[in-house]
Every structure is written in structure tokens, then in C-alpha cells.
Design a protein around this nucleic acid. Structure first.
Lengths: 158, 158
DNA sequence: AGCCATTTGGTTGCGTACAATTGAATTGCG
DNA sequence: CGCAATTCAATTGTACGCAACCAAATGGCT
């Protein structure tokens, strides 16, 4: 009744941490897919719009820093947003390497329709604001630790 | 100092819940990528192997239920595992619609090398077992709520 | 001025995710 | 038995996410 954990237990426990995280992330994806269908954008595209609405026009680099995404992900995504008419991409005059991402009128206008989204999401989680804050803090803490581990070239054991 | 939250606050808070989740999930991905490189498999492939090690040979359907993945994801993934020699896919004799996924000798043997993985991951998180359990429980609760919301065809507001 | 490391986006290739469709096999029902 | 509905896997098409590589532009240094 109180045997020490076997290797099998470790393998199972292990699955559950990251698996639960993964599952929650994908479950969120499903909810967003439904809610964002009206707006005609995907969840990652919505994240980009959130950043632009909050911070105004930004170069791709800055966008990537806010979202933890690199150009390999952002370039095609931004092209789709541009094709949808929500965003323009313009080479910076000052630094020709840089591409400024600018909201179009449509992009600005979309914000109004997006304002209903957060409340609907919050309702779907069935968590209150404090619970969400606590969970978010925990997750950020976890992310920091994982980032540090990756950059530390991963020591072999604990 | 105690003004009610504006719509902008909502949009920001909203970003943080799902964004933190997403970020944590991707951070885990980076850690697993490094740790699993030795084994020559990706994280989702590792999940499949975990299920097979725990439950033995399974049809694709059952595998998908354990992992919350559909055949569109599993089919190509399983082909890659088969190409790597870790798994065989065989049409069930009893039900020709079903495909049994079976571990090869190599697949069974890989388990031994995989046994070091969980401890290394746990070390990278910098969380103790209880913290991990608590977080996992919270995430599962969240996933359940989100699943319910999706299946309930998403009521408009909270 | 000339050279070179760095910065910045873009592209390619691979591997998930998932909706939608297809097609074969099976089951259920009259 | 015969046929319609269902089940199951595969395929197709779209969209991330990221590593690896590339090219243009910049800035520092001599």
C-alpha cells in the first residue's frame, strides 16, 4: 500500500504533466476556433492582433519577442493577415532590413468585434479571475524554468 | 487605484491565460526536443510509445482516445514510427477496418533508454511532485470545462 | 573606403493538429 | 437476406511551430 514509485509510475506521471498541458492547450484551441470563426482569424492570428491593438504598429522582430515566435512562424502568418486585409507589411525607410507591420482600417475596426471574445473564453473556462491569475503565474514560472533548462544545455539529472 | 477593468484590460488578461498555456506547452516542447534527440523520436511520438508501453498493442482508434488525437494526426505519425522500426501496423484479422499498432523488438527495447527521460524532465521543471500534481489537476479541470463548452455549442456569454 | 560580424526577414523542410471527405468493412434492422 | 447507417482509417488541405539556412542591410573597425 505504500510501495516506492516504480519506473512505470515515473513514465506515467511524466506523461501526465506535459500531456495535461498539451491537452489543455489544444482544448483552448478548439474553443477559440469556434469563437473566432466569426472574425475569420485563427488563434495565433488573434494573438498577433492583440499585440498590435495594444502596442500599435511594430516590426516583425518586436512582434516575435512579444509572442515568443520567430520569423519562420510569423512570416507566413502575417502574409495571411495581409491577404485578409487586416494588416500591411512595409519595409522600414530607416532600416531596410526591418518590416513594419501596420494595422489597416479593417484591422483597427476588427477590435470592436473582438471585444466580446475574452468574456466568452472566460465563461468557457469556468474559472474565476483569481483562479486564472494563479494558474497563469504558475505556468509562467514553469515556462521560465523550462527555458532556463534548455539554455543551460540540460544537466543530466536533478 | 481601484477602477473597474476596461475592455483593454480584458483583452490583455485574456491573452495571458491561453498565451501562458501555449508558451508553457511550447517550452516543454523545446526541452523534450533536446532530451528525446538521443532516442530519435519527437514528443508526440514519445507519447504514443508511452501509451503502447503501458497498455500494449492497440488499434489506432484506442490510441487516439488515450491521446485525444484523431487519425489525421496519428496516421502519418505512426508511419514515421514504423519507418523508424519501432512499430508495425497490421490490419486486424477480426475487423478489417481496424489497424493494430504493435511494438517491434526495437520498440520494446527503446523503453529502457526512455526510462531516464521523466526524471530529466522533472528536473527541468524545477517543480516538486506535489506541485506538479496540483498543476496537472488544475489543467485537467480546465480541459474538462473547455471540452464541455465546445460540445455545448458555446453559449454566448457567462 | 574596405572588410566583416551582426541583425533582420524570408524560405525550406519536417512534424504535428484538425476539419472535411472518401472508401472499405461491419452492424443493425426490417 | 438486403440495404442503410455506422465505424474506422486514410487522405487532403490549411495552418502553426521550429530548426537550418540564406540574402540583404547595417554598423563597427581599421
Amino acid at each position: 500500500m505504500d510501495t516506492p514509485p516504480t519506473t512505470t509510475d515515473w513514465l506515467r506521471l511524466d506523461q501526465q504533466i506535459c500531456f495535461s498541458l498539451n491537452a489543455a492547450s489544444r482544448a483552448f484551441g478548439s474553443v477559440y476556433r469556434v469563437i473566432l470563426k466569426d472574425l475569420g482569424i485563427t488563434y495565433p492570428q488573434y494573438l498577433v492582433m492583440l499585440v498590435l491593438w495594444e502596442h500599435g504598429d511594430l516590426p516583425v522582430k518586436k512582434l516575435g519577442e512579444h509572442l515568443r515566435l520567430d520569423s519562420g512562424t510569423l512570416s507566413p502568418l502575417l502574409k495571411r493577415l495581409e491577404a485578409a486585409g487586416l494588416v500591411r507589411r512595409e519595409r522600414s525607410a530607416r532600416d531596410e532590413r526591418s518590416v513594419e507591420v501596420r494595422l489597416t482600417e479593417q484591422g483597427v475596426a476588427l477590435r470592436e468585434r473582438a471585444e466580446r471574445v475574452p468574456r466568452r473564453i472566460a465563461a468557457a473556462t469556468n474559472f474565476d479571475v483569481d483562479e486564472i491569475s494563479a494558474l497563469r503565474a504558475r505556468l509562467d514560472q514553469l515556462t521560465s524554468a523550462l527555458d532556463a533548462a534548455v539554455h543551460a544545455e540540460l544537466p543530466d539529472e536533478g
